[in-house]
């Protein structure tokens, strides 16, 4: 059974196993398929008016499935590996160990935001940026540049206290737990703010180019599970049905042909959080 752990608690051997599996998935070309899928989803959502991956209720189940698929690819390389989660309310500075050279490497250099240390530095030769929205061939970050702070535990707790999953108009203008956690109810907040705090590719539609994407979304996914535990009588997903241009509970979420929000509700059939 897959157990996702807090990245701050990983042993040196666990960190190395995760990094090595990510590098191997990249080397064989599979990693970039995930980056391309994210870029395509973003562009299609924007132009079709059906918000599947972001800015709508299916933000959480869509990313849950996206992480499960990626975790499966990692486990083909090393069955012991899972996606760690990054609690950015605690490990909330440039000095946090997640940015050390034995895990993700640190912030970028001033000239061009290029990450210069760790396993994903361009100079290491193992992490070219192939799926792009700009010409930067290297992983880029500028931690804390655009917004100085990450979301706080108090802000997370306030989101967790909201009893309703989501509400009409089921978009970035909605009230409820989903939009609050995603950060669309107040831009530059929560999930969105973390992307922006990291900067570089994490600010763009090719954000999975930065491996921190998976650790960030693992924590977001954990918060959805935590929210459900706090509100066992609340509908774990809304809307239930017959909502035009919105992914309802039993609608298929593209690009998958057999995945609905309903099929993603019980994460414990796939993994648990430690």
């Amino acid at each position: 059974m897959t157990v996702r752990k807090n990245q701050a608690n990983l042993t040196a051997a666990e960190k190395k196993a995760f990094v090595d599996a990510v590098l191997e998935v990249k080397r064989i070309g599979v990693y970039d398929e995930f980056v391309a899928a994210h870029r395509l989803r973003f562009a299609l959502d924007m132009n079709t008016g059906v918000y599947v991956g972001h800015f709508g209720p299916s933000f959480l189940p869509w990313h849950r499935k996206f992480l499960i698929d990626f975790e499966n690819e990692l486990q083909k390389i090393d069955a012991s590996v899972s996606i760690p989660y990054w609690d950015w309310t605690v490990d909330n500075s440039v000095a946090s160990s997640i940015w050390a050279p034995d895990l993700l490497g640190g912030t970028g250099r001033p000239l061009d935001d290029q990450v210069m240390d760790g396993p994903f530095a361009y100079s290491g030769g193992k992490w070219p940026i192939n799926i792009q929205v700009d010409t930067r061939p290297f992983l880029a970050r500028n931690l804390g540049y655009r917004v100085p702070t990450l979301p706080t535990r108090a802000q997370v707790d306030a989101a967790l206290a909201i009893p309703t999953y989501d509400s009409a108009p089921w978009s970035d203008a909605s009230a409820g737990f989903r939009s609050t956690l995603e950060g669309t109810a107040s831009y530059m907040s929560m999930h969105n703010r973390v992307h922006t705090w990291i900067w570089g590719q994490m600010e763009t539609s090719v954000s999975p180019n930065d491996p921190v994407f998976w650790l960030h979304h693992s924590f977001v996914d954990k918060l959805w599970a935590d929210w459900h535990a706090l509100h066992p009588t609340s509908a774990e997903y809304l809307p239930a049905g017959t909502t035009p241009n919105v992914i309802d509970l039993n609608d298929t979420m593209p690009p998958w042909t057999n995945t609905t929000p309903q099929s993603m509700l019980d994460h414990t059939q796939f993994y648990t959080y430690a």
């Binding site: 870029r39 973003f42 562009a43 924007m46 132009n47 800015f55 929205v133 700009d134 978009s171 970035d172 203008a173 950060g183 669309t184 831009y187 530059m188 999930h191 969105n192 703010r193 992307h195 922006t196 600010e203 763009t204 539609s205 954000s207």
Partner: peptide, 19 residues
């Protein structure tokens, strides 16, 4: 590539998590 999101404003492929 820029997108308009009603009252919440505009974004682009480069700055996708802001408005």
């Amino acid at each position: 590539h820029v997108m308009h999101h009603g009252k919440s404003g505009w974004s682009s492929a480069i700055n996708h998590y802001e408005r």
